[in-house]
């Protein structure tokens, strides 16, 4: 068996905030009718989390559900559990029109930590209002990070988790490094 590795194999950087690629994270794209009871139950059973509302994410550690679009969820599970959860999802939704795909190795996940300054690091790269009150813990946003699509959420007030495509992992890491460079704090949001 080949050994699974994440895009940047846990690369990290220390500036005004800490940037770290978190390594292997199991991810499942689930598309279907999000109002469907069976789908809600199956997603909750796979993650142990409740179904999130529009543009919200219910994530605890490496398990959770994020709202991607009116017909799409991103299901986060431990990397080793993906195949089993995917099979369970398929069984539970056998009678529903749906699509569930393992996208774990198609994406990269970064963690940005180091206090309220993480808001500024994100605000430098994304056209999103990162002010306290406009975006906070539990919110989820798909957007653009400089030139590439990305999505992020705040597990708590002092950190951000960012998901991007694996092919642009190095680009996103470099972006985050630049935005978190020592001495680059703006002091507007934090």
């Amino acid at each position: 068996m080949s050994e699974a590795v994440s895009a940047l194999q846990g690369a990290s950087y220390d500036g005004i905030a800490q940037v770290r690629e978190i390594g292997l994270q199991g991810m499942i794209t689930l598309r279907g009718d999000l109002g469907n009871t069976a789908l809600k139950k199956a997603a909750a059973a796979a993650t142990g989390q409740d179904m999130p509302g529009q543009r919200k994410a219910n994530v605890k550690d490496d398990s959770g559900i994020a709202w991607m679009s009116p017909d799409e969820l991103l299901i986060l599970v431990p990397y080793d559990a993906v195949d089993a959860r995917l099979e369970a999802l398929g069984k539970a939704l056998a009678k529903q029109h749906h699509m569930a795909v393992n996208v774990s190795d198609a994406r990269a996940v970064f963690e940005l930590s180091g206090g309220p300054v993480v808001r500024e690091v994100i605000a430098k790269l994304c056209p999103v209002d990162m002010a306290v009150g406009a975006f906070g813990a539990g919110d989820f946003r798909r957007t653009r990070m400089a030139q590439v699509p990305a999505a992020f959420w705040m597990p708590d007030e002092n950190s951000v988790r960012i998901v991007c495509f694996r092919s642009v992992a190095q680009y996103v890491f470099d972006l985050l490094k630049g935005a978190a460079a020592p001495g680059s704090a703006v002091g507007y949001l934090a």
């Binding site: 529009q54 543009r55 679009s69 009116p70 056209p127 999103v128 946003r141 798909r142 957007t143 653009r144």
Partner: peptide, 12 residues
């Protein structure tokens, strides 16, 4: 109108 995001045009 689908996800409720109010964004500037580079996101669209």
């Amino acid at each position: 109108p689908y996800c409720g995001v109010t964004g500037e045009e580079t996101e669209f």
